[in-house]
Simulated scan of single mutants.
Amino acid sequence: MIVTTLPSENQLQEDDRVLFLDYDGVLHPDAVFRMRHGLELRAPGHLLMHADLLAEILQDFPQIKIVLSTSWVRLLSFRRARGVLPASLQQRTVGATWHSRMPRAPLYGYDLYTRYEQIRAAVTAAGLTRWIAIDDDPDYSWPANDSRLIRCDPDFGLGAMSTQNELREKLAKITDGV
């Protein structure tokens, strides 16, 4: 079972509007490697280069909460993964699809789930009905008939204008101008 890690004061409710956020391929190119000195981007730009752009887009949608659906949570911990975001995004970030109590062994439990399955498990556990996800979905795990994914080009991520426009449109749909 996949459990979200949510501070008690920020428990997700059925009527919450949620953005599931991946980092690699979204906030920077999908070319991040774990090195002895830390994480390193081996592509033009810098780590989290589009995080401020996401914060700017979300200013028009103050009711949106963020749940991290990124491998960074598993590698660094929820607090550290959230802590690399700009303050305005940190304040919105209420949980993650991976929790430190989950086994780290490869090919066990969580590791067998696709990103889509990880998100769906969190959605089901919280009873969410208004949510979207932004991810480069390199394994194309997302069902074709489910339009809640904003699929990013892994080289450009949120830097692509078409991705920004799609994100704004889908945020507007799940917020209904609330």
Rank of each mutant, 00 (worst) to 15 (best):
T129P: 01
I150R: 14
V26S: 09
L85N: 05
S162V: 15
Y140V: 04
L75A: 10
G38V: 01
L6N: 13
M1V: 12
F61N: 01
R115P: 02
S162H: 14
W72I: 02
H99Q: 09
P106T: 07
L128S: 03
S147L: 13
T163Q: 11
W131F: 14
G109E: 08
K65F: 12
T175V: 10
P154T: 06
R82K: 15
T175D: 10
Q164S: 11
L39A: 07
S100G: 05
D176N: 05
V26L: 11
G109P: 06
G95H: 09
A31E: 09
D155V: 08
A144D: 06
M49G: 01
A126H: 15
R151T: 14
P29I: 02
Q11C: 03
V94T: 08
E117S: 04
H28Y: 14
E166F: 05
A121E: 04
S162Q: 15
P62R: 07
C152K: 06
R120V: 04
F78L: 08
W72Y: 15
N165C: 11
C152V: 14
D52G: 11
G83Y: 11
L89V: 07
I119M: 00
R34S: 01
Y116K: 00
Q11S: 09
A96D: 01
T114P: 01
V32E: 03
P29E: 05
A126F: 14
D30Q: 06
L89E: 07
P44K: 11
P103V: 02
W98R: 11
R130K: 12
W72C: 02
M1A: 10
S147I: 00
R115Q: 02
L149P: 01
Y140K: 06
T93M: 00
L128G: 03
L58H: 05
W131H: 06
R34A: 04
S8C: 13
V73L: 04
E14F: 08
K170N: 12
P138D: 05
V3A: 07
I132G: 02
V67N: 09
T4N: 05
I57F: 15
L6V: 07
L107F: 15
L171Y: 05
R74Q: 12
A87V: 10
H28L: 06
N10W: 13
Q91G: 06
L167P: 00
V3G: 03
Q11H: 14
F33H: 11
E14H: 13
T124S: 09
L12R: 13
T4M: 12
V26I: 07
H46A: 13
G157C: 12
T93F: 10
S88M: 09
R120S: 04
V18D: 00
V84Y: 12
K170P: 05
R151N: 03
L85P: 03
G157E: 03
Q11V: 05
L112T: 07
V94R: 09
A105H: 13
F156W: 13
L149C: 08
D22N: 13
W131D: 01
Q13Y: 13
P7G: 13
D16R: 14
D136Q: 04
W142C: 01
P138I: 08
A172W: 07
D153A: 14
M161L: 15
D137C: 13
P154Q: 05
A172F: 09
R168W: 14
R17K: 15
D136V: 11
L47Q: 10
Q11D: 00
W98M: 03
D176P: 04
D155N: 06
E40P: 00
F33Q: 04
F20K: 02
M49R: 10
